[in-house]
């Protein structure tokens, strides 16, 4: 098995606010992430696909193809957007790293037909990231 990873960056704004909680609770739980006007990050996404290289092309999947999937599914949807208001898949969720990573997994998994999606790692800052993978997956 070979694990192939493609990286991409996008910039977006968000805020953490749960309307079911009081203003005070929101402030206590989310701290400065609760600022009503939002704030932004440069996100770095690492997408890992696992598979056997094709004996003819030597590729697990064509990187150009993966790049196009990422451009269409992620960059166009999330880059320079306000995640709370402009990304339908995040509607009703707090756009934390954990939740965005899961949304990205669910967007990409059905589109990757050569090899299989192994891991999504989303960095919100260089010191904070979330990983999403199938239960029981190992390696890479």
């Amino acid at each position: 098995m070979v694990y192939l990873t493609r990286k991409l960056e996008f910039s977006a704004s968000h805020l953490y606010h749960n309307p079911a909680l009081s203003a005070e609770e929101n402030k206590r739980i989310f701290g400065k992430c609760n600022n009503p006007h939002g704030h932004g990050h440069n996100y770095t996404l690492e997408v890992t696909v696992a598979g056997e290289p094709d004996p003819v092309t030597g590729m697990v999947l064509d990187l150009k193809e993966l790049k196009e999937i990422l451009e269409r599914e992620i960059t166009q949807r999330m880059d320079h957007r306000f995640l709370n208001y402009e990304v339908a898949e995040l509607k009703g969720q707090i756009p934390t790293c954990e939740n965005i990573a899961r949304v990205i997994w669910n967007l990409l998994e059905p589109k990757i037909n050569k090899g299989r999606l192994h891991k999504v790692r989303l960095y919100e800052t260089p010191d904070l990231y979330a990983d999403c993978y199938r239960n029981g997956a190992h390696g890479a």
């Binding site: 790293c97 954990e98 990573a101 899961r102 997994w105 790692r121 260089p126 010191d127 904070l128 990231y129 979330a130 990983d131 999403c132 993978y133 199938r134 239960n135 997956a137």
Partner: peptide
């Protein structure tokens, strides 16, 4: 959420 996905949080210090 039981969708068979595992989420991990990584933090650097």
């Amino acid at each position: 959420m039981n969708d068979g996905l595992k989420i991990e949080l990584g933090r650097r210090y």
